[in-house]
Structure formats: C-alpha cells, structure tokens
Design a protein around this nucleic acid. Sequence first.
DNA 1: ACTAATTCCGACTAAATAGGTCAAGTATTA
DNA 2: TAATACTTGACCTATTTAGTCGGAATTAGT
Lengths: 158, 158
Amino acid sequence: MKLTAKARYAVMAITDIAVSSKNGGAVSLSDISVRQAISLAFLEQLFGKLRKAGLVDSERGALGGYKLAGAPAKIHIGAVMRAVEEEIQTKRCGDTGIGCTIKGAKCLSHDLWQAMEDHIEGFLDAISIQDVIDQRFPQICPELVTNGLTANEMAAAE
Amino acid sequence: MKLTAKARYAVMAITDIAVSSKNGGAVSLSDISVRQAISLAFLEQLFGKLRKAGLVDSERGALGGYKLAGAPAKIHIGAVMRAVEEEIQTKRCGDTGIGCTIKGAKCLSHDLWQAMEDHIEGFLDAISIQDVIDQRFPQICPELVTNGLTANEMAAAE
DNA sequence: ACTAATTCCGACTAAATAGGTCAAGTATTA
DNA sequence: TAATACTTGACCTATTTAGTCGGAATTAGT
C-alpha cells in the first residue's frame, strides 16, 4: 500500500463519480478530467486498473463512461489505493534480509514496520467512498494501548 | 512524515545504540555499520541530522561515537523519522490547489489525507525506542469511531 | 454509412527522488 | 603523533513517479 499522488487521484476520481452520476448513469473520464483537473490520459491509466480490480464498471462507445461497481458505502479507500498501486506491500524490511536479518534473527524494527502497515491499512479500509462524501473520518484513537498503559498515561509517566 | 528506507535505517541505527551501549557509553558508527549492514557514509549522513534534532549526543575522537540524548522510553519513533526526512508533510493535497481546490472549495478528499496523516503520526509518536526493543506495539484500535458507529458495527450494517 | 464520443491498450519518457558514495577535512585521545 | 572518529558538502546513479502519445475498438446519434 503506497501513499502516492496516483492513489490520491484515484480516490478523487472515484469520489467524483459517486457525486456526479445522475441516476446511477455512467460518467465519462473527460468530465472527470475537467472537474478534477487530472489529465484524461492519466485517468485512462487509473481506470484500467480500477476496472480490473472490479471497483468500477465501464460502458464503451459514445455516451459511455464509468460507474461504481457497488454502493459508495461498500467501496473502501484501501481497496481503491491497492488497485492503482501494483505492489501491495513494498520494500518491507526483511524481504531480502539485508539490513534486517542479523545472524538469522529478525531485526528489532521488523515488527514495528509491520504494525505500522497494519495500522495504516486498517485505517484506510475503515473508510468508504460514502464516508469521504460525508466528510466522516475516524478520529485518532485516544487509547492506543501499549503494555497496558494508554498513550496519554505513558506521556504523563515520563 | 515520509515512510522511506532512510527513516527505517535511522530507527534501526538508533535502536542499535540503545541495545549495544555498555553502561551508557558511546557507540561508534563503524560498529553500527557492521551490525546493521548500513554503509558508514550513509550513517554519518543520518546521524548528522539526528544530532541536530537533539536525539543523540556525539563524542568525538578515539573511542568516540554516539549515545542517546535521553532514555530509550523518551525517544519516540515519530521524532526520529521527522529528523531524517526534511519535509514534515509532503505533497499534501491542497498545497497548490491544483486538483484539490475546485472553484475555491476544498476537494472532498482533502480532509481524508489530513486525517490519515494525523493517524500515522499519532501511531509513530506513541512508540518509543524502548517499545521497539521490547517488541511492544499498539494494536489496531478496535473501535474506530465514525459517526457513532464502530468499524465493526458499520461492516455489520452493510 | 458516417461521424463523434468514448473506452481500451501498450509503449514511451521527462523529472524527481531515493539511496547512496566520495573527498577533504577537523577534533580527540591512546 | 598516529590512529580513530566525527563533519560537511558535493556529487552520483538507478528507480520511481507521474504522466504522454498513438492508435484500435466500440457505440450512439444523424
């Protein structure tokens, strides 16, 4: 899961469809291109992947375009981002062992990166297109539990 | 806050100091270089920034090296990563307005990226070097609150 | 049938970034 | 005084990013 501009454009574009579609009709990429200021050629590249991932359906020909494959509340940001970025998990410490495996043992920070990735992924998978439209996002969890103390308690203990 | 290999190396190296230091003595970069399989030249680059950020103290001369500026429990991963990556927040949607501001209004996904960044930053700031050594990481918060429903409740409601 | 609008597909590319290296020092101490 | 260690900044290079380009296939309206 990469957090790049490409992934952001994909979310913007697919959100645009949810907002702009009339009666569930198809929305053309040229319309999205104008509204979101993203080049048509780049949108074509993105929507090829979104279609293959089953997130949108296409209608070819004149008056064609794309429509969401499901309800906005059922399409999650994480899925959109994974669709347009080929590598699900990139360059994770330990894939090669270089700089991670020391005499056969996992490095201390290996699990840290895994926990971080899980956290980011969990966050993005918890948000649907509908949530974005409604501007409804998860707040930071106030009780990040580490060894029985909350983050706030740990800060106070310092 | 960028999540690159450079930032990971910095965390690995600073964790190495916490683990390898004898009686709080300085640890040389050449030792870290060997143990963590990171080039000495690259470590020098990283520790220059860590020192300026006040996360480590240096001792020059023979038998010199670096030591942590504070207790491992007081140095947090987020601070380490911010120290080695110059831009705190990069490429955020809306900095230029291109592809974000449409007729003067913020794009729908603008706040999404902000919420995501806050979430990642909160996660990393909650973890100290000591936590990494003890392999103690925050679990995914089971109650991601969005509009009063937890993530689980929302999934069930779909 | 013809035309215009649109998706589909793969190759290509310019610019930026990541991830380093190298050279030439300066400071400290065994 | 030699060895070790830190300091600084310029430089380098492969990869990734963020696209473009050209053309083919498909469909709706005239």
